[in-house]
Amino acid sequence: MNESTLAIAASGLTKSYGSLTAVDALDLSVPAGQILALLGPNGAGKSTTTEMILGLTRPDAGELRVLGAPPVEAVRRGEVGAMLQNGTLLADVTVQRLLTLVQGMHAHPLPLAEVIERANVAPILRSTTTKLSGGEAQRVRFALAILPDPRLILLDEPTVGMDVDARRHFWSVMGDLAAEGRTILFATHYLDEADEFADRIVVINKGRVIADGTGTDIKATVGGRLIAFNGPHRDYSTLPGVVAAAAHGDRFELNCFDSDLTLRALIGLPDVRGIEVTSPSLEDAFLKLVA
């Protein structure tokens, strides 16, 4: 594929901090217009990867092109917008002044009215940045991300601190942005969020890609839900929707990619009691992936 048609083209990307290799020979190709989730536990290298794509961190080795240009050049041309994780906002100014200040620094910014509407910051324009709630601050960061009218949007754990409604609104706006042909890459450690909103999930751990596919592909590997119950000994791994089964005495644990399907089958079985459905933590899922 021609490099210039890719939003992100990375090969052999490596970054170490002292003895810690944060990103280890990472390869990643993201075609324009894709919504991609970068999924991984804390310390997997998500933030470092994001920072290299943004030109904030220089890779030790490897090739990296963003929309066909070196990262810093793409950023200067206003092609890239980002919500940084816990990104600090300028202190002691109103949201309105903050947005006006940054708008004047971009190459071809979106009109402020459009940014205000899309990021839903109209009610907090007169608030001082230091007095915003976590969710409100995230909306301001989101406004900053779309301000340059970017073709690539990077979001580092974007919905942290948002309530359910805010999350839903956020992803619906993201869907609109993607529909306009913008490429969206978001880092998360929630499998559900990645599965629900991304076209493609790239799972990284210890700085390397360990799985790459659709949400269904990934869930089939790591399992979506965990069903635990007491019951007679038999082979439960043949039940529909099950990835793997494990026994702990009388208690069984099924790792499922479709827990609804599994539950229906399970409830029909005799002497099955004490059913419990939980979502495994991503850390647990990773133990499976890297085992």
């Binding site: 594929m1 021609n2 210039s4 048609t5 190709s29 075609p31 324009a32 894709q34 929309l67 066909g68 041309r77 206003g78 092609e79 004047g104 971009h106 190459a107 071809h108 910014p109 009218d149 073709r151 493609r200 360990i210 799985a211 790459d212 596919g213 659709t214 592909d217 990934i218 590997t221 499976k288 992936l289 890297v290 085992a291």
Partner: peptide, 26 residues
């Protein structure tokens, strides 16, 4: 196996044109 091969990427619309550089308004 724990590693899923990368999904097939959609074919590029065009293979020769570089992304258009949009006019800078400032």
């Amino acid at each position: 196996t724990t590693v899923i091969p990368p999904v097939a990427l959609p074919a590029p619309v065009s293979t020769s044109t570089a992304p258009a550089i949009r006019p800078v308004t400032t």
